[in-house]
């Protein structure tokens, strides 16, 4: 039986820095295996769409413009992604990667959450098609 059994913590805290981290001024090092923004590499992709199929939150659209010419656009909805890295596991060609560098993903505009990967002219085509079909068409041209 003791009264005030945490007095030692209290006293030592007086001379210690508060445990609070003041985030924007003080950033912690991201751990090596942190799962942050998904990156896609066109080189080996076959456009099979397995990644999109297994994604639990519908965050990936693999848009196949021309399968023969390997014209693919990879549309990634950052806001939907739950960072489970199932797509990385599901991709048979190891095209996907979750690096630990880009983890401050908050944004004020929804547009920032829509990321297009792919050759520039292919992305242009997709964007143009989306613009002419209206915003809604974006979901129909997926794999």
């Amino acid at each position: 039986m003791r009264l005030g059994s945490m007095w030692r913590d209290a006293l030592s805290a007086l001379v210690r820095e508060p445990a609070t981290q003041q985030y924007p001024f003080e950033r912690l090092q991201a751990p090596e295996h942190l799962r942050s923004k998904l990156h896609w590499d066109l080189t080996n992709c076959t456009g099979c769409g397995l990644c999109a199929k297994d994604c639990p939150s519908d965050a990936i659209d693999v848009i196949v413009l021309d399968k023969k010419a390997r014209k693919f656009v990879f549309r990634y909805h950052v806001d939907r992604c739950t960072f489970c890295s199932q797509c990385v596991m599901s991709c048979p060609k190891k095209c996907l990667e979750m690096a630990n560098d880009e983890w401050e993903l908050a944004s004020l505009t929804p547009d920032d959450f829509l990321v297009y990967y792919g050759n520039e002219e292919d992305v242009e085509t997709v964007l143009a098609a989306a613009a002419s079909n209206g915003a809604d068409a974006s979901s129909t041209d997926t794999e």
Binding site: P31, H33, R35, T82, F83, C84, S85, M89, M98
Partner: peptide, 26 residues
Amino acid sequence: ETVMNLLEGITGNRVNYSANQLGGVK
């Protein structure tokens, strides 16, 4: 916070770790 950081270091996430996949772990 210590153990949260450890989990983040292992799995890459702090809360829903998604360490499992069908047939093993990631």
